[in-house]
Design a protein around this nucleic acid. Structure first.
Length: 723
RNA sequence: GGGCAAUUAGCUCAGCGGUUAGAGCGCUGCAUUCACAUUGCAGAAGUCGGUGGUUCGAAUCCACCAUUGCCCACCA
């Protein structure tokens, strides 16, 4: 006993990881069998991993280790995501804080350098953390959404979609973030409820309502519902003079069904340049559109005396002026409205009309189906299964309401759009046009200039299941490992990422990207609060690992974690599983010291009795092993059904309350009885080793550490106890 | 405004048609040279959100209601 310490020492976990990594068995090239593939969701290179990452690393590692032991050729491909907006936003904020400079002060080239350096440092931290979690992924195939191979894939994908007319450029109203100075897609918008005074303003004979008087300068169209009897006397197209903010203007009556007769007075004026609804109305009636606010949120010449002022500062002054002119009828101070913000650390969205690149989701592709239909069909045909199932409905609903995907961003850190311009010519290809290819803005008219915009980060991560396997080349990996088996991620990126992967894979490969989508929930703190830095309730996975070990954290993240449901995590829970790791350790100490030849100081039986020899088991021990076999079958079944939470809980129970509390306790009298001793030794050994194997996917470190006490080979690649 | 989900012990959650409803944590009491105090044994604790229905039988199925959470939507 002197050789085995009384307490399991989790500080040795990194050594165990090294042992696995050096063995080469993370790499499927050193394994045989039917392939089993998971692409790791690439963490953003925006800093460090949080406990949400720890969840997916654990879930995926469980699947991978389970399938590897079952004799599959497992590939778990790791990587990181350059995360255009998130990284840009972070780096810009850092530079501004340290040097008081914006990216425009630095220039594109210098900014790209800084961003790349930051991304590299984040990458290194992340990779270290992934290893610390015990993730048995194949580092030899590590990928980055912004490296050379992925860049080729991105440009190829763009080119193919462009050639098929699925990518187009157009002036649309977009979600403009004046803070980051880029547009963002509809999905990146986060609506926040905000109290704001609601103004009733006199507009000629009408009263209009608005929460945003600063946008109203150019409002020369007044819209009512065609069926609204109150305004029956006014005809569509009729013009009248009205006194407005900066003097008299000519207003035109427009009748449109977009107006809600119940809301306010049932009359509204429109600002087509800065509002999506208004833009649509203007489009329908072919009305003028005028820009009021610039890219930075500053008022333009149309604002008259307010020109050059930021809208935030100008609003109260404009209200004052309106009041002075007697145009304010009343103010509703108890009004709430929803403000659009950029969810990736940006500012308040000010819609603008801009020329942007879009992916057309309704246009027919070559095989007569629109991208929308391709996305729907993959799930409806049951080629892809989503767990839990209720997310399929949510997915369908999202697709049905899907509008064209805006893919261009006015940012500098990302895949630059593979399109070049020369006067009125336009050129799109994987490589720049011959002889030219200037990316500089000062290129003269007779030179090709590349579009300065970068692509939405989801455009590149949409290719992830196959850009990582060598596509667009005819790579062996692509043939072997695609479609992948499981895509495991958080339900919060079902639309952002999962849907885009289906779109890209269906269009570019004519195949599904994965067979099963497993969606886990968000990790919350012990009071069910969302973790956030401002609340100070963020759990740092590495800190937890240092105190309690990876295995303990892994179990804490798995038990009770049902697909699609959020999981509260407390330190108490993790501590409980640290205790469990120690329980395993001590049960193993007991078994090894009694049943291992050198420590027991005697020859110990190694095989169950047959006609040729071996040790005959007592009836009681036979029953115990039969029960173990049944238990192993039940655990296997749960793992096959992706029921990790219950498999983990069952293992915990069985080990502690059946094996440790009962079987080991009862074995003490058996071991003392010379007639029963050999049978008990053998039974205990089998019990222990079988459970080590079953527990290994969940708690790889403690189980491997114990295994290494007596074996030369790795537990990681032992045969799973039940087929 | 549309949709989805949840409501079971102090807390977090299992159970989803069939004997006295379970677990972990927490709580209470007892135990300690014997693998482990990061332990063991014993125990208290729930009219399974409400109302009605289906059934021989309901925490479990159905309807309605209440509360909470989440997602989607162009209410100026």
């Amino acid at each position: 006993m002197a050789d085995i310490p009384k307490t399991y020492d989790q500080s040795k976990e990194p050594d165990i990881y090294k042992l696995w990594e050096l063995s080469g068995y993370f790499n499927p090239d050193n394994l045989s069998g039917k392939p089993f593939t998971i692409m790791m969701p690439p963490p953003n290179v925006t800093g460090t991993l949080h406990v949400g990452h720890a969840v997916f690393l654990t879930l995926q590692d469980i699947m991978i280790r389970f399938e590897r032991m079952r004799g599959r050729k497992t590939l778990w491909l790791p990587g990181t995501d350059h995360a255009t907006i998130a990284t840009s936003s972070k780096v810009e904020a850092m530079i501004y804080k340290q040097e008081g400079k914006t990216r425009h002060d630095l220039g594109r080239e210098e900014f790209e350098k800084r961003a790349a350096k930051f991304a590299q440092e984040s990458h290194d931290t992340i990779v270290h953390q992934v290893r610390r979690m015990g993730a048995s992924c194949d580092w030899s195939r590590e990928a980055y959404t912004f490296d050379q191979d992925r860049s080729l894939a991105v440009r190829t994908a763009f080119k193919r979609m462009y050639d098929d007319g699925l990518i187009y450029r157009g002036f649309r109203i977009v979600n403009w973030d004046p803070k980051l100075k880029t547009n963002v897609s509809d999905d990146e918008i986060e609506w926040k409820e905000e109290a704001a005074p609601f103004y009733y303003l006199k507009y000629g004979p009408f009263t209009i309502g608005t929460a945003r008087p600063e946008t109203k300068f150019g409002d020369k169209y007044v819209v009512v519902h065609p069926k609204d009897a109150r305004y029956h006397e006014y005809k569509h197209g009729q013009q009248l003079e009205v006194e407005w903010i900066n003097g008299k203007i000519t207003a035109t009556i427009i009748k449109d069904e977009a107006v809600d007769m119940e809301f306010g007075t049932g009359v509204m004026t429109i600002t087509p340049w800065h509002d999506a609804t208004d833009f649509e109305i203007a489009k329908r009636h072919n009305l003028d559109k005028e820009q009021i606010i610039d890219d930075r949120g500053v008022l333009l010449a149309v604002a008259g005396e307010f020109v050059g002022q930021h809208i935030k500062k100008a609003r109260p002054l404009i209200v004052e002026k309106l009041k002075a002119k007697g145009l304010v009828e009343k103010i509703d101070e108890a009004y709430f409205h929803r403000v659009a913000t950029n969810s990736r650390g940006g500012g308040i969205i000010e819609p603008q009309i801009k020329e942007q690149w879009f992916v057309d989701v309704n246009k027919e592709t070559k095989n007569k189906k629109s991208l929308k239909e391709l996305m729907l069909q993959a799930i409806k045909s049951e080629k892809i299964k989503i767990i839990p199932e209720r997310f399929e409905k949510i997915y369908f609903h999202w697709i049905e309401n899907l509008r064209d995907w805006c893919i261009s961003r006015q940012l500098w850190f990302g895949h630059q759009i593979p399109v070049w311009y020369r006067s009125s010519e336009i050129y799109c290809d994987v490589e720049p046009p011959k002889g030219q290819g200037s990316t500089s803005a000062k290129a003269s008219a007779d030179k090709w200039t590349q579009d300065p915009d970068t692509l939405d980060t989801w455009f590149s991560s949409g290719l992830w299941t196959f850009s990582t396997l060598g596509w667009p080349q005819e790579a062996t990996d692509l043939k072997t490992f695609h479609p992948t088996d499981v895509l495991e991620t958080g339900y919060d990126i079902l639309f952002f990422w999962v849907a885009r992967m289906i779109l890209m894979s269906e269009f570019l490969l004519g195949d599904i990207p994965f067979r099963t989508v497993y969606l886990h929930g968000l990790i919350r703190d012990k009071d069910r609060q969302k973790m956030s830095k401002s609340k100070g309730n963020v759990i740092d996975p590495l800190g937890v690992i240092d105190t309690y070990g990876s295995d303990a954290l892994r179990m804490g993240l798995i038990v009770g974690n049902l697909p699609g449901n959020d999981l509260p995590l407390s330190e108490d829970k993790v501590r409980g599983y640290r205790n469990f790791a120690n329980k395993i350790w001590n049960a193993a100490r007991f078994v090894i010291s009694n049943c291992s030849s050198p420590l027991a100081g005697e020859d110990v039986p190694t095989s169950v009795g047959t006609d040729e020899g071996g040790t005959k088991l007592t009836k009681d021990d036979k029953t115990i092993l039969k029960d173990l076999d049944k238990f192993a079958a039940a655990v296997t079944k749960k793992l096959e059904k992706f029921d990790f939470a219950h498999a983990a809980e069952d293992l915990y129970h069985y080990f502690w309350h059946t094996f440790a509390d009962k079987i080991i306790e009862e074995s003490k009298t058996k071991l003392a009885d010379p007639k029963k001793r050999a049978s008990a030794q053998l039974m205990l050994k089998i019990m222990l080793e079988t459970q080590l194997k079953l527990l290994h996917p969940f708690m790889p470190f403690v189980t491997e550490t114990i295994w290494q006490l007596e074996h030369k080979d790795l537990l990681m690649i032992q045969k799973w106890p039940k087929q």
